[in-house]
Amino acid sequence: MPTDSSALFAISVAAELAELPIQNLRVYERRGLLAPARTPGGTRLYSQADIVLLRRIAALLTQGLNLAGIRRVLELEREVDRLRARLGG
């Protein structure tokens, strides 16, 4: 059974699932907001976790943040998750 981090989706499917243009996914990758898996031939493969992240990015954009701000928010959210895990809750 695939996990949330299993890379399953081609870029066209990921864009459709996230309701974003394909070009946006490429931009977000170039800006370091996400890092999809790659096949040996270089094809991007997205996981369910990547789709969730893409939706989070879209939500932050609608709130008025730019990509640099979104990167910082995502970094802080990951840090909060790490600290919660360390504290056991």
Score class of each variant (00 low, 15 high):
45 L>F: 12
68 A>I: 12
87 L>I: 09
13 V>Y: 03
9 F>Y: 15
82 R>M: 05
29 E>T: 12
34 L>S: 06
39 T>R: 05
42 G>A: 10
46 Y>M: 11
18 A>K: 00
36 P>R: 00
29 E>P: 03
50 D>S: 03
2 P>L: 14
82 R>V: 10
30 R>E: 11
1 M>L: 15
60 L>D: 11
15 A>I: 14
45 L>V: 06
85 A>W: 00
6 S>C: 13
70 I>P: 05
42 G>Q: 06
45 L>N: 04
40 P>K: 01
44 R>V: 08
36 P>A: 04
51 I>R: 03
45 L>M: 13
6 S>V: 12
3 T>H: 10
32 G>W: 06
11 I>K: 07
89 G>M: 12
14 A>F: 10
60 L>R: 05
28 Y>N: 02
51 I>W: 14
22 I>G: 00
63 Q>F: 10
43 T>E: 14
78 R>T: 13
34 L>I: 06
50 D>P: 05
3 T>A: 12
24 N>W: 09
36 P>V: 07
75 E>Y: 02
63 Q>T: 08
18 A>H: 04
62 T>I: 08
30 R>L: 03
47 S>T: 15
49 A>H: 06
49 A>S: 14
25 L>F: 03
20 L>A: 11
62 T>V: 11
18 A>S: 07
76 L>D: 12
10 A>Y: 15
68 A>H: 05
37 A>I: 01
28 Y>P: 06
5 S>Q: 15
48 Q>L: 12
67 L>T: 07
35 A>E: 11
77 E>S: 01
72 R>H: 08
